[in-house]
Simulated scan of single mutants.
Amino acid sequence: MKLSEFQRALIDEFGSQYGSALATDLVLGELGGRTASQAIEAGLPPREVWLALCRETGVPQAHWYGAGKLAPKH
């Protein structure tokens, strides 16, 4: 997962305002007591951060994988 895919997944799942607030305000114990934004700044892979955020917020597993990827063009 690229950073742009993480950002797209965050907006798709939570909306731009709430997603942004979650990324900067929600402390994730699984990521060493960092927020998602802090974890990414510290160099953790966006996929790892996304999955931790999903687990913490109860996102259905069906939304975890492939999140943030654009639909194929026909």
Rank of each mutant, 00 (worst) to 15 (best):
K2A: 08
L3E: 14
L3P: 04
S4N: 12
S4K: 03
S4W: 10
E5K: 06
F6W: 05
R8V: 06
A9P: 03
A9K: 03
L10C: 00
D12H: 10
D12P: 02
E13A: 01
G15Q: 04
G15C: 02
G15V: 01
S16T: 11
S16G: 04
Q17N: 12
Q17Y: 11
Q17H: 10
Y18T: 12
G19I: 04
S20C: 02
S20R: 12
S20I: 01
A21T: 12
A21P: 01
A21L: 14
L22P: 06
L22H: 06
L22Y: 11
A23T: 02
T24I: 08
L26K: 15
L26Y: 11
L28V: 06
G29L: 09
E30D: 14
L31H: 08
G32A: 03
G33R: 12
G33T: 04
R34L: 07
R34M: 13
R34C: 09
T35Q: 07
T35C: 06
A36K: 07
A36R: 05
S37Y: 10
S37W: 03
S37G: 13
A39Q: 05
E41Y: 11
A42Y: 04
A42T: 08
P45R: 14
P46A: 06
P46Y: 06
E48S: 12
E48F: 01
V49A: 10
W50E: 09
W50L: 08
L51K: 05
A52I: 00
L53C: 08
C54Y: 09
R55A: 15
R55M: 11
E56F: 03
E56N: 14
E56Y: 09
G58I: 08
P60G: 08
P60M: 03
P60T: 01
Q61D: 14
A62P: 00
H63D: 14
W64N: 07
Y65S: 13
Y65Q: 15
G66E: 00
G66F: 01
G66R: 07
A67T: 07
A67F: 00
G68E: 04
L70W: 13
L70Y: 12
A71C: 08
K73S: 13
K73R: 15
K73W: 13
H74N: 14
H74I: 10
H74Y: 12
